[in-house]
Write a protein that binds this DNA or RNA. Structure first.
Lengths: 179, 179
DNA sequence: CATTCATGCGTACACTCGTACACATGGGAT
DNA sequence: ATCCCATGTGTACGAGTGTACGCATGAATG
């Protein structure tokens, strides 16, 4: 069995990477910047993550839990009696209006999959995870559609700098659900 | 009136920037790489675009026309008799299955607005442009919703590496339109 | 106890980058 | 005709980067 001297070392590097991306973006991520943020020598970061892609995969996997936490805090969307469209609209609003830096961080890592094939499986996992969560309340096709709408509305808010309109979101979710 | 010695110089640099981003991604964009691609000296690129952001803005503005061309080639969505949901689904399919490198290029520039505020107005212009195009066939709220759905479905295809399902797209567009 | 080797650490090298600056050139204004 | 200045060019510097390599350390194994 392989054991490490400092089992926290690897985790500390991932946490530091997330902070670096949050502050300076993926463009500001380097073995050195992570090493400085994690307060470990350069060789330690290159040893644990020989490629920056590996580090990004680990960071994305961990950051993905942010949205899941918001969902869990809201009871996991399991209340069949509640209005799902309204629930989702509220969920998005809470997520977007909360820790904005964290939101941008998650999105940036997620969107980075466009040019980094290594991240695509992780991005796909996230989409499937949300779809499964919704699958408990609706059919698979509608769930996939809802995920697409959520992604699209997040993009609109984050990319164009516009404000999030919860009423609009509820309306759109409702139409998709009314299929 | 201010005239340049080489009126094409600036344009050639923009074209070169688009090619560079298409081949190596935004991460591979630098004053030097653009200069090499455009076959101009380094000083020329730094003179015309002192910041890479400026160059990206010009590139995004020019690349945005790619989708508009596909729309125009399809008659501009102005045929009221046709099924709008099917039209949009076909449009997306044609765009996504066409020049894939060009699609990724446009998306990457578009998504870069997340971390580069300078690009946001241009991204917003694009979204508004498409919404206006759709506004001729439906109300403003529905148009905005359709844009969000289009963005979201493109993301799903490009980020997760999944295939584009035109039937699914048509179904979702239909639901949003049936509001 | 002795050995092994995954892990951790420090340093150096070659490379690219943004930036700055001095100088060349020639169109347009005077 | 002359001057001005936007434009074009070449070069250099310091900072930051990925990578590689040699060495240190101590847990695991026999």
């Amino acid at each position: 069995m392989v054991r490490r001297y400092d089992p926290e070392r690897r985790q500390r590097i991932i946490d530091a990477a997330i902070r670096v991306v949050g502050e300076k973006g993926i463009a500001g991520l380097s073995h050195r910047s992570v090493a400085a943020e994690a307060d470990v020598p350069l060789g330690s970061t290159t040893y644990h993550f020989s490629t920056l892609d590996e580090l990004l995969v680990a960071a994305l996997r961990q950051a993905n839990e942010g949205f899941a936490k918001v969902v869990a805090a809201r009871g996991g969307l399991r209340d069949d009696r509640a209005d799902l469209a309204g629930e989702l609209a509220g969920l998005l609003g809470e997520w977007l209006s909360g820790d904005r830096a964290g939101v941008e961080l998650e999105c940036e890592l997620y969107l980075a999959a466009l040019r980094r094939p290594a991240l695509r499986p992780v991005a796909a996992e996230w989409a499937e995870g949300v779809a499964e969560l919704l699958g408990a309340r609706t059919d698979a096709v509608t769930a996939r559609a809802l995920v697409a709408v959520m992604d699209g509305m997040c993009l609109q808010v984050l990319l164009t700098g516009g404000a999030y309109d919860e009423g609009f979101a509820r309306e759109v979710f409702g139409r998709v659900l009314r299929g």
